[in-house]
Amino acid sequence: MSEPLLSVRSVKSFYGHIMALRGVDLDVHQGEIVTLIGANGAGKSTLMMTIFGDPRAREGRIAFRGRDITHLPTHEIAQLRIAQSPEGRRIFPRMTVRENLQMGALASNEVHFQDDLERICAYFPLLKQRLDQRGGTLSGGEQQMLAIARALMSRPQLLLLDEPSLGLAPLVVKRIFDVIRALNMDGMTIFLVEQNAFHALRLAHRAYVMVNGTITMSGTGKELLARPEIKAAYLEGGRH
């Protein structure tokens, strides 16, 4: 197999004295959708943030395109074209949609802002009509779309999505997952963290399961969907 785009090797990270990641190993290859599922508090979002150095991994190694990024400052990691739509979306509420997108384009110096705006609004036509509206006035679904669109504005080589379906109506969730699939078809590598295991596993090429800060299972999306213990823990009653 070729060298992975992102590789995480025995990473441990802490919140104060609490060890949130207890040695995580994980790879994302060019062109894949990789999904990480797990219960609340398993450490999924911590891993997303640890990749960006906040909190910083206290042990282990994180590499992006072969380059060690474990000790880089957060903003320099962002400039390497890894983008994240983080937990809770974190839209800038008192900036317009356009300004939010401009913030996303910062890592690419806004040189192709207009082109990218057109291209990305093709995935999210709704945002186009809301460009001059303040981010804080958008609905939850629109904010999620804006968070993904903002992440895309830097022309990332790897897109991290942290629970894009959280708190959204089923129809909106479907739209978001459709967009994720379309993005991947167009060549985007995606690392997706989800509680909505059914949708996420169907979408993913490969998947990991996280329990208590460690990876307990991995395989293709289909394999994991078929496993009885996954069904019992994450899927029963979860088909929405």
Binding site: F52, D54, T74, H75, E76, A78, Q79, A83, Q84, P86, R90, F92, P93, R94, M95, E99, Q102, M103, G104, L106, A107, R150, S154
Partner: peptide, 18 residues
């Protein structure tokens, strides 16, 4: 814009390369 972003959400601003 970067200043206003830091004012509203410093962590997110860093994630975007500020």
């Amino acid at each position: 814009r970067a200043q206003r972003a830091c004012e509203q959400d410093r962590k997110m601003a860093a994630l975007l390369g500020v």
